[in-house]
Design a protein around this nucleic acid. Sequence first.
DNA 1: CGTCCCCTTGAGTTATTTCAACACTCGTGG
DNA 2: CCACGAGTGTTGAAATAACTCAAGGGGACG
Lengths: 224, 224
Amino acid sequence: MQSMRVQTGATQQAIVTTAGKAFCFAEGLELPGFSMRFDRDEEIFGEGESADFVYMVVSGAARGFRILSDGRRQITGFHLPGDVFGMETRGDHRSSAEAIVDSEIALVRRSAVDRAADADGAAARQLWALTAGDLDRLRDHMMLLGRKCAAERVGSFLLEMARRAPAEHGTQLPMSRSDIADYLGLTIETVSRTLTQLERDRAISIRSARCIVLHDRTALGVAD
Amino acid sequence: MQSMRVQTGATQQAIVTTAGKAFCFAEGLELPGFSMRFDRDEEIFGEGESADFVYMVVSGAARGFRILSDGRRQITGFHLPGDVFGMETRGDHRSSAEAIVDSEIALVRRSAVDRAADADGAAARQLWALTAGDLDRLRDHMMLLGRKCAAERVGSFLLEMARRAPAEHGTQLPMSRSDIADYLGLTIETVSRTLTQLERDRAISIRSARCIVLHDRTALGVAD
DNA sequence: CGTCCCCTTGAGTTATTTCAACACTCGTGG
DNA sequence: CCACGAGTGTTGAAATAACTCAAGGGGACG
């Protein structure tokens, strides 16, 4: 396996342990890149940085977020294995991203993405569809943030995670209560209380803080 | 001027009063289409309908929104003259859109959009950038919905409208309090009370319900 | 076995909602 | 020209969902 030194952002420099791989961004869309390891809570890219790369989770998980000057944080999305993130059509990143747990992240140079889009109309279409899919999911999340009560927010979140991160013995939640709260527009106390209440209602079982079993999907009380 | 009959959706049929025009979707991206008039509160397209057209506001204003089965509504965005909306990469519309006031809307066939994207890489890039721009604005709005208090939401909204719909004698608000509330994730009463309070604080003047003058942009108390 | 971090629980507070009444604006028709 | 009515916006008072502050619990790890 090769090893190379890359400049990934304004400040960061890293030893890349895998080089010359191709990563599947979508059905029939393979892009050349390399993968990097990020520790838990390590920044992947920051708001305002030049968007020289596009990212995909290989293993682990990441959070995308924005922060107000007074520290309030809104998590715009969780990125799980296979998810592409950090793709900008303009020059700079408008949000930040961090690893939630120790993760392996694929990096593809933006120039390579642009080249693929220019060379192949179908590839361009696929990349556009990735962005459009994000837009669609964000509109759903706007409904959650603007119009759903705490119980519905937590219920919707559990259903989303159950769909995206199915595991053998219950749904795994790689993120902390604080991450969940900042994703759902709630406080950690409200998230915790709501989960406890859902367990009392026999809608879920909390095997541990990071592992939940969904029993009764209708009892989650999620409107649609 | 020509006149033609078009099937615009599952049910609607309309007399088109302008045909054969080209509409500017972005810098150097002109697409052939026609324009139609929509009355106040008339549906432009509905959730689940086949997305056969892409739309642009010529004059007037539109709202994009989603509704839960129990009637709760979240407005995902307001569309003002020049704004493109209803562009889907998949087959169906995932949100609805209605005219806020009597409006003239340009319709471009999706097939024409696809053709332009296939033929010209630069056009494809522009269309992708339109979607990416929407995504970016939605992320800002998520911060508003998830983490800002009522006063900040209304303040941010006024700044947004002042930027997008500048007028001679104050900012025009084509939409009702109910629309504003459903955009900001508040109730109409809270929107109304907050505007009154902002006027007491001398941050704005309410010339009429639909026309506001911004005095002191810092007094709007909008964090960033 | 202790310490740290995260999570949970409790009690009191508050921002926003809910419910209800009233005010304004703008057409329409007498 | 004024009365009327419908739709829209404002205001008040009470209710409540979620937040804040504070303390305690439990698991992971050295």
